[in-house]
Design a protein around this nucleic acid. Structure first.
Length: 555
RNA sequence: GCGCCUGUAGCUCAGCUGGAUAGAGCAACGGACUUCUAAUCCGUAGGCCGCAGGUUCGAAUCCUGCCAGGCGCGCCA
């Protein structure tokens, strides 16, 4: 609809120019928007105003010239007006909205899928939590934002790959091994001092108990480093399995689990360091080797090989991002917690240093999650190891509520996650509000089948003509906005837009529902209304599906 | 100190790449269930869009400065 109007304006402007009523054919991009106020019409354009300087004419004169030559082949426009400083407002015939419904029914699950990706390959890497402890709510947010973003992009024609990077090499996993070994000693009755930098959580004891049961005294007779390595590998494996279960509970599946250790073992990290040393991007100082990230906009150069000979996490990450490009992805999206934002310039620098275009690399930074219960903060002492895990949250509030709530805020905005609120089945809780629409419509369709024997919701132009109530037109208008909402959400990597759209649509539907009965004695009207609400249900279902939330038939 | 993010109704947040009179939910107050699910709806009230400049026909939106909050600034990840 919007595109049609744009075309009409452009065509009219061209004709006006040919007739000498406009002085230039240098037209700006036509911007058609939906005015906030109903009395400004269904659509509005600032075309005349933004053309004023080029045309060297008053906006109102330009508007008049455009309107004079406006050609409306399908007769969708009821009337037009020139208003304010030079807006052209368009009023659409209410019936002109009706065809939206048949398009929705035809396209069904594919409705709103604008192909903006053109099959280009995009990798979305998210969660990537270290396998050193259970996931917490912050990870949950990143998980859901990443997963929904991936789903939306896939829907819009991108070839998407979801990836989890496992930090199973390096110091943290080594610390994990030490923590477990110490707890094992403790369990076997030895006196130990448990250092502050070790992992404090009770889960370490559980793992230690298991390993002690499997390996017994070997742990204490073996070479210490060997014992630590064994504990590290075994613990990381177990924790990773928990993480996979958690993600599974959230309905998240990865295409690739990429191991940092595997990357190191393949020699890729050493290879990258060798290459950059050759290119003089890496130099030696104070016994360490530094990458010249400052040359590419970072605040200072960064160490890639420590003076003890070990490579840093950054070194792995350089190789990892190289590898992503080597695998042929056109675009790379990383979802990180906001506390890692200082890391972006150096990764970007490493990409630029290797001759790749850094604009192909995007980071989504999800802001912090505050876990609350009835408005009171829930203690999240990382140091004490006492924190509420993501698993506990999912178990308590359920997958749908958890997912939806993570998506009801722009990822850039901190999120208060209230456990009690998430369980409440009221208007406070947007998941149920949206799902309720789906359940209500399902119930109506069921009743129509049972009582009126209407099983087949088919297109019937005669019936649809009965959809004339303002609430019905309003509802159809909302439905027609779904495709652009999805496209925007994909272009900006902002899944929350779909959540907000669904809440708005739900509100419009509930209002309609309370005002009008779908199933009436008028069979034509009933048929038309069933066609309408079935279209609403398609969109609610599609939208929820993109967000990874179920659409229940009944509640 | 430097960098990134944020500042919109009492609270939690939207606000489309600059548009006309600023949006929703909650909380408050008043209403609607013999009706397809009241997990719903209708109405009332609530605003120097942090502050000050600038850009222009037009700014919550873009630029600069300041104020406040969060996060980051390691040869940790």
């Amino acid at each position: 609809m919007k595109a049609d109007i744009k075309q009409m304006i452009l065509d009219a402007a061209r004709t006006a120019f040919q007739n000498g009523e406009l002085s230039s054919d240098d037209f700006p991009a036509v911007d058609v928007e939906e005015p906030k106020l109903v009395l400004h019409g269904d659509f509005s354009t600032n075309f005349a105003m933004v053309s004023a300087s080029v045309q060297k004419m008053a906006p109102k004169k330009i508007a008049q010239a455009v309107l004079k030559h406006l050609n409306d082949p399908n007769g969708i426009i009821q009337r037009t007006e020139i208003a304010g400083p030079g807006f052209i407002n368009f009023y659409i015939h209410p019936e002109a909205w009706h065809p939206v419904l048949s398009v929705i029914h035809e396209k069904d699950a594919a409705y709103g899928a604008k192909d903006i990706g053109g099959g280009s390959r995009v990798q979305v890497e998210f969660v990537s939590a270290n396998p050193t402890g259970p996931l917490h709510v912050g990870h949950g947010r990143g998980a859901v934002v990443g997963d929904a973003t991936a789903a939306i992009l896939a829907f819009c024609g991108y070839d998407i790959s979801r990836e989890y990077y496992i930090n199973d090499a390096g110091k943290q996993v080594h610390t994990l091994g030490r923590s477990v070994l110490l707890r094992a000693r403790e369990l076997s009755g030895q006196a130990i001092v448990f250092p502050e930098e070790c992992y404090q959580g009770d889960y370490i004891r559980d793992i230690a108990k298991r390993i002690l049961g499997e390996k017994g005294d070997w742990l204490f007779f073996a070479d210490e480093e060997e014992a630590v390595s064994f504990c590290a590998a075994s613990a990381a494996k177990e924790i990773l399995a928990w993480i996979q279960e958690d993600l599974d509970l959230l309905g998240i599946r990865f295409d690739t689990w990429f191991s940092e250790q595997g990357l190191c073992d393949s020699g890729k990290v050493d290879e990258v360091i060798r290459q950059f040393t050759q290119n003089k991007m890496i130099y030696e100082q104070d016994g360490a080797r530094w990458f010249k990230t400052e040359d590419f906009g970072d605040e200072k150069d960064r160490v890639v090989v420590r003076n003890n000979g070990q490579t840093t996490y950054f070194a792995s990450d350089i190789a990892y991002h190289q590898d992503k490009f080597d695998r042929g992805f056109d675009r790379i999206i990383d979802v990180w917690g906001a506390d890692h934002h200082g890391y972006i310039p150096r990764i970007r620098a490493s990409i630029a240093a290797s001759g790749k275009d850094p604009s192909r690399f995007t980071v989504i930074l999800t802001q912090l999650v505050n876990l609350l219960r009835k408005g009171e903060p829930v203690a999240m002492g990382k140091r004490s190891g006492q924190f509420v895990t993501l698993r506990e949250v999912i178990d308590e509030v359920g997958r749908d509520a958890a997912r939806f709530i993570f998506l009801t805020r722009h990822y850039d905005s901190p999120l208060d996650f209230d456990l009690e609120l998430a369980k409440q089945q009221t208007n406070d809780n947007p998941v149920f509000y949206v799902q309720y629409v789906h359940a209500r419509i399902s119930s109506i369709l069921k009743k129509a089948a049972e009582e009126k024997n209407i099983d087949d919701i088919a297109f019937d132009p005669e019936a649809i003509r009965h959809l004339t109530a303002p609430e019905e037109i309003e509802l159809i208008k909302h439905l027609s906005r779904y495709p652009e909402t999805v496209a925007e959400s994909a272009e900006k990597l902002e899944p929350h837009r779909i959540a907000f759209y669904l809440m708005d649509l739900a509100a419009v539907f509930h209002a309609y529902y309370n005002r009008h009965r779908v199933i009436t004695d008028d069979s034509q009207l009933t048929a038309g209304r069933l066609y309408l609400v079935a279209a609403v249900r398609i969109i609610i279902r599609n939208g929820l599906h993109l967000l990874g939330v179920t659409a229940p038939e009944s509640m």
